[in-house]
Write a protein that binds this DNA or RNA. Structure first.
Lengths: 346, 346
DNA sequence: TGAGCGTATGTTTGCGCAAACATCGGCCGT
DNA sequence: ACGGCCGATGTTTGCGCAAACATACGCTCA
């Protein structure tokens, strides 16, 4: 830390009456130091409160033992939980994690962030890019960087990609509702700019098509509960709508409130399924059936992949998908006999 | 980044046909370089893709331009949003942010984290310590560290503390309910181990006492919606309970569900007020009246304080309180005429 | 016109650490 | 008994950068 005059190896060496190289050897746990010497040095370190200087170490070794994590925002559950996973996994490998904020979801901003990353004390970066950027432009990830992209897409042809198996998750939600007997499933999608939103929507549609069912028009929200609420109010006026799959839990929350406000009972008259499994989902009214993402796992895999690159082992492309898990709670049930909405309970 | 052979100032100097010192001057924006020389150097940098090596810089300058942020968890809204505020404020000052996880809420774990911090490339640390540690033990923050503590207490006698004005926030929630006409206010507190929980509870009690009202027994949750639900079920059996102040929004969410499950209408029969103003609070059923914390502000103040210490200006003790704002939504209303619970609506 | 000064640039140095290489003893085997 | 070898420790060096100091080249003004 910014102590005025940090204790250096030379200081320890002087006190212990050895060379600074021996101090270095002890500090790095090398074996070729006789036990008595080691003890002397250790005692001197203790006495002086010696702490290795990471700048000098990094300069010498050419590596920082740190990973940069690039995100647009920490406001989404997914990003935060992925970050948590990354921090935990990095700690296991004794790596530090440095945050690299990206001001805006634009190519330029990402490039700027990489410029900063290049100057920062990091050996590699994990980019949590839930949004796709002006997609025609060239790769925003500068060459020569060790990068793993989380929660994105870009087909993993340039850098490894780790992502939730969005398609399987969306399919499991859709199938769950269909298997309950619903004639079709409506979908409240995320914004078009989101890879994850696209893929959930596509998988939902694919399931309906595969089962020869009618595909209702897609309703696009922006991930917020408010957008879910707006869409819910409209959906309340669609008598044929008995099941809705929302692309995230927050929008599902908005749906629940809209249906509640319109006097529509969930799940008796409309079933709702979300995506994410936020910690509150079990406490929604009613508790929300949803698709759980394993963010911890994603974080772990990102770290492993990125450290693989740092070590020179490990692939530099390819996509890793993390499975989801359908969590069935009280917001989904079989539809009424008519196939349209169940009559409202007296 | 970990490129094999990074471009150094010497490389740029060679290409631009100047000394490496001149390159350094250009890189650092010093004025004493003639424009034509500057341009030559800039072009050479561009061509080579030069990027200053932060390790060497840090070694030379004795500073990293980085702040460490210490937290137990990123699972709480407050921590994450404080972190976001810190990252944003740090970016303004061109500081990087490194995460320092603390494995457990114990003195030892904190001490370990500080040891790591000492070896890490950070100039100072912001500790987000929402929990108090075995309080009789000596200061967990080693001397000589530049530390600011957020969301805690410890009276700011050893390090600066930045915190939400918990007392004022809790008082405003309590007064709001009393001013609506409730005879008293029940309180669902957070865990005893939390400073914030203690202070909210104490302020709530103080308001009741100041107004000469009966103080109901305190119910302790653990911040989770589930604990709020359990307590809500018990509260539903208390006919005298017409107003509840929950120490956070998640527990309030649990209360709402418990009351819903017991057929108690909010706010007609029971009013509920939360604390935090999470983004979903406006979409709860009904939308939650709550006390908004200004985490961005907290983050900003933490950074300013800690950079003040780094610069040697700025105080090394003292407490800064950030005001809260009561956000009135639909979950709070006047009680029934009887002073007990309003009759359930037909 | 030349002393004096300021400005642009170059040279030296060392930050703390750890590879690479050097040295110094003792211990082995024959 | 002595060459050779190995294990423990010391010495040198340079990572990339930027202070500190040195130099060189005008330009001003008496």
């Amino acid at each position: 830390m910014g102590e005025r005059r940090a204790v250096s190896m030379a200081d320890v060496a002087r006190l212990a009456n050895v060379s600074s190289q021996t101090v270095s050897r002890v500090a790095n746990g090398e074996t070729s130091v006789v036990e008595s010497t080691r003890q002397t040095v250790l005692r001197a370190m203790e006495e002086l409160g010696y702490r290795p200087n990471s700048a000098a170490r990094a300069l010498k070794r050419g590596a920082f033992r740190a990973i940069g994590v690039m995100t647009f925002t920490l406001s989404t559950t997914g990003n935060v939980r992925t970050l948590e996973g990354i921090v935990a996994a990095a700690a296991v490998h004794d790596y530090a994690v440095t945050l690299i904020p990206v001001n805006a979801p634009s190519q330029d901003a990402v490039r700027g962030a990489f410029t900063r990353a290049g100057e920062l004390a990091v050996d590699a970066v994990v980019a949590i890019m839930e949004t796709h950027l002006a997609s025609d432009a060239p790769a925003p990830y500068p060459p020569g960087f060790k990068v793993v992209v989380a929660d994105s897409d870009d087909a993993g042809d340039r850098h490894p990609v780790v992502d939730t198996d969005q398609a399987a998750g969306a399919a499991s939600a859709t199938d769950h509702l269909l298997d309950l007997g619903h004639r079709t499933v409506w979908h409240v999608a995320g914004p078009e700019s989101s890879y994850a939103a696209q893929r959930r929507r596509d998988a939902w549609r694919a399931r309906l098509v595969a089962r020869g069912l009618q595909v209702p028009r897609v309703l696009h929200g922006d991930w917020t509960p408010e957008s879910g609420y707006e869409i819910g109010l409209r959906l309340a006026d669609e008598p044929s709508c008995t099941a809705v799959f929302a692309a995230n839990d927050q929008m599902a929350l908005g749906l629940l409130r809209a249906f509640h406000d319109r006097g529509l009972r969930v799940p008796e008259q409309v079933s709702v399924v979300g995506f994410d499994d936020v910690p509150e989902a079990a406490s929604y009214i009613p508790p929300l059936t949803t698709v759980r993402q394993d963010f911890e796992q994603i974080g772990r895999l990102c770290v492993e992949q990125v450290l693989g690159q740092v070590r020179g082992t490990g692939p530099t492309t390819g996509t890793t998908l993390v499975p989801t898990q359908l969590v069935v709670r009280a917001s989904s049930a079989a539809p009424g006999r008519t196939g349209a909405r169940r009559p409202r309970r007296a």
